[in-house]
Design a protein around this nucleic acid. Structure first.
Lengths: 141, 141
DNA sequence: CGCTAACGTAGACATTGTCAATCATTGAGG
DNA sequence: CCTCAATGATTGACAATGTCTACGTTAGCG
């Protein structure tokens, strides 16, 4: 009979919870949580902006969740919604200058927060973990 | 600038979400979700029953969350709450015969559900992942 | 005995997960 | 051209989860 403490699903859930909590605590300084922070990062990375549909797909969220996240970031002036020139249904979410500034600071904070737990692993081990998780997450393609 | 897709915290969160969802789907057949299933497993594993405090600590939950989980499992006759003989504040949660039966079936289902994603890794890789996650999760001790 | 701490519980509240329904727009086929 | 099915964004509803505060009961200690 398998012990719960050896179940990879359980361990994933626990580890995720711990790291996310620590990261949320670190990000509190800039008034962000992991979720909105992730949206901001993606909005920064795509020069012309990223569609909400792509945001949802990348983050594994329901499109309806993205609406509120972008609303809040837009309200704070960190991102802007602009209609796509190619498809008027699509709205491109792009970071503002203020958004990019905050992202830099937030990325530092998030990094140190995450390392509170992940720092127990050597860089090589972290690389291994990253590779394994990437394969678990990647599209069935 | 680190890409979100390479952030271990993000990958953990995504992987956890995917595996938990798949497991929930598998467990639906027996009317359980991951959370109550975990409580049931722990109640089965400890012969004399496990205190709600220990349940909370092991699962990383707030004690107040455990109350509702145990309430529901007890309502379905899968576990029983008995006052600890040693400490009348403590209530020991133990699985009933029906609870143990269901646990066996549920463990099969949960296992196959989790492997939908984790099956992409070889058994050796899964062992590596388990070890790494265990170290991330373990007490600071 | 009198205090402080621990356990379980209740309640409040924000965040997250999941769905169904709607509106505007697009792209494809007749 | 003109339907029409499909797509992107949005809303609303509701369950599940995370987080905190407060309270009653009981232990353990000085």
């Amino acid at each position: 009979m398998p012990a719960l403490a050896d179940d990879i699903g359980f361990l994933l859930s626990r580890a995720s919870g711990l790291v996310v909590r620590a990261t949320n605590d670190s990000l509190a300084e800039v008034g962000l949580r992991v979720r909105p922070y992730s949206v901001l990062v993606l909005a920064c990375d795509e020069e012309g902006g990223i569609s909400q549909r792509d945001l949802a797909a990348t983050l594994g969220l329901d499109p309806s969740q993205v609406v509120a996240l972008v609303d809040e970031l837009a309200r704070r002036g960190l991102v802007e919604r602009t209609p796509s020139p190619a498809d008027r249904r699509t709205k491109l979410v792009a970071a503002t200058a203020r958004g990019r500034e905050l992202r830099d600071r937030a990325t530092e904070l998030a990094g140190s927060g995450g390392q509170q737990r992940l720092g127990r692993l050597t860089p090589a081990e972290q690389a291994t973990l990253r590779d394994l998780l990437t394969r678990v997450v990647d599209d069935p393609a």
